[in-house]
């Protein structure tokens, strides 16, 4: 077997984390992107900046704040304990929360761009045909913005797969729970186990390349995103 059981477990966990994060961000990110694309409010600037923050912030900053706020003395930790859920650090769902923040701009920005490029005319046309706003969104906006959604989903998924710093800080490295592929590779290197590190790294390299290749090959018309 090329990969050990622990490595396979780490890969499966990584894919689970990336899939769930992408699904959650599709639901959360779409309304944010829509608002950012359509609003003329003064708040567009500040909210856009907040959404883009994870692009700039070191993952250690995000990990540090998450560890404190989700910990037993932090506000989020107090709330989850009150709900009887315990605290989030060292759990898979803690990583999901971290990843949702970490990958937020990768979902919101491409979708926002897609919404903006649609412009007002298709929406006005739909309105004159007496389509309800919801109907307009699903029959007109979604099909037109589909390339943006696909780009955003692939980027979000790939970016979550590549997550390391946040996971290291809030994960606790538990096999099958928070030990994702990037952390597993780090451990192999730390343990001077270069053979295993090489194999798992090669898998990640090939995977990442294929994802990006799919992304670029899929766009038949680069002018229209």
């Amino acid at each position: 077997m090329l990969l050990s059981e622990g490595d396979l477990q780490a890969i499966v966990l990584t894919l689970e984390l990336a899939s769930i994060t992408t699904a959650i961000l599709l639901v959360l990110g779409t309304p944010i992107a829509w608002w950012l694309a359509r609003t003329k409010s003064w708040w567009k600037g500040p909210l856009g900046a907040v959404v883009a923050l994870p692009l700039v912030l070191p993952p250690s900053v995000l990990g540090f704040y998450l560890l404190l706020t989700m910990g037993p003395h932090g506000p989020v930790g107090q709330f989850t304990q009150w709900l009887g859920l315990g605290t989030l650090p060292f759990t898979f769902w803690g990583l999901v929360v971290g990843s949702v923040f970490y990958s937020l701009p990768f979902m919101v920005q491409p979708v926002q761009n897609a919404f903006e490029s649609i412009g007002d005319r298709p929406l006005e046309a739909a309105a004159t045909l007496r389509a309800s706003p919801l109907d307009t969104f699903f029959s007109v906006v979604l099909p037109l913005a589909l390339p943006g959604f696909i780009t955003a989903s692939i980027l979000t998924f790939a970016h979550t797969v590549g997550e390391f710093g946040v996971v290291l800080m809030i994960g606790g490295n538990i096999p099958g729970e928070t030990r994702v592929a990037s952390v597993q590779i780090y451990d192999h290197v730390e343990a001077l186990d270069y053979g295993q590190a090489h194999r798992l790294s090669a898998v990640m390299l090939v995977f990442s390349f294929l994802v990006l290749l799919a992304l670029y090959a899929w766009r038949p018309n680069p002018k229209k995103v």
Partner: peptide
């Protein structure tokens, strides 16, 4: 119940923040 720190200071930090 075990969670693993990257080094011993990282481990202490897990306990200090009350997460472990």
């Amino acid at each position: 119940k075990l969670v693993y720190g990257e080094n011993i200071a990282h481990t202490a930090q897990f306990v200090q923040t009350g997460n472990a």
